[in-house]
Design a binder for these strands. Structure first.
Lengths: 151, 151
DNA sequence: ATTTGTGCAAATCGTTTGCATCTGA
DNA sequence: TCAGATGCAAACGATTTGCACAAAT
């Protein structure tokens, strides 16, 4: 069923319906501009995904969405602020964003810059440590680093 | 007992004895150059510490150790390669290095760029997830993010 | 009409690299 | 002697910023 894209940005591809995305954004208190709706359609179409700014930018360009890299960064941060995305700080320079905003852990393959959700509640902390005096708990991040079996 | 430093880089301050550091480096297969010994003295003097390149650089400059930032980066990576340090990828742009190379978790205060060991085996994973086919486990990193109680 | 978002290019930050020069074994 | 280290400055990649213009309420 998945034919090649034929310059039809809003059809012929697995994108979320623009109307739905518009509401999503409005409900999150964000102005549904053209680029935000288009990026939202890319991001929230199918199940959960992980993107970097660069990845989303390329995807947008391929989908003929007129958008600049600066706006990609802007949008990713706004979405994250609004709770539509979760920023995953896994390592190194590049920031990853996850459309799965629930509390879960990640696999990360450094060489491939590949980020994956760990399915289910398989990884859990045994005990929560108590925060030192003067500080309060924000969140526990668990990253299980992997490498290819050969490499 | 701790008087002010008086331009006496190798005394009058809690530094590891150079001889000991030299042996440490030699045993790790690293040439004990002047800067490496000096940086090693700073790093391995007292208990466990965490440094960024920038932090170590400033400390070195203050201690009148002639060293360039490039060499700091170089040295930190060589030390890490040799198992004398562990690189902690906690977030964002800056790399942290930990003189505690044992398997343990961290607290991290983003605003202050402050990294702390979580004492003892307080935080442990309940279950290890099995790696997806084709991949193998490298290591699980646990970072408990904190913020100041007021801020 | 006013606020908010966008695009571009320049600026920034942490880090790496190329290369000539020094240094330790 | 000579591989390996150092320092400097330039190069780098990801991200951010300043500002003029455009779009949404």
């Amino acid at each position: 069923m998945r034919r090649q894209s034929k310059q039809l940005p809003d059809s012929d591809r697995l994108l979320a319906p623009s109307g739905a995305v518009e509401n999503l954004l409005r409900d999150a208190g964000l102005r549904p501009t053209f680029q935000r709706v288009a990026l939202g359609a890319i991001l929230f179409a199918n199940g959960d995904r992980h993107v970097t700014a660069e990845m989303l930018y390329h995807e947008a360009v391929q989908t003929k969405v007129p958008v600049s890299l600066a706006t990609i960064y802007n949008t990713l941060h706004k979405f994250a602020e609004a709770g539509l995305l979760r920023q995953v700080m896994v390592a190194g320079s590049t920031a990853h964003f996850d459309t799965n905003t629930s509390n879960h852990s990640h696999f990360f393959v450094a060489k491939a810059n590949l980020l994956l959700d760990i399915p289910g509640p398989e990884v859990v902390l045994d005990k929560m440590p108590r925060a030192p005096d003067g500080y309060e708990f924000v969140r526990a991040d668990i990253v299980v680093r992997l490498k290819r079996k050969d490499g």
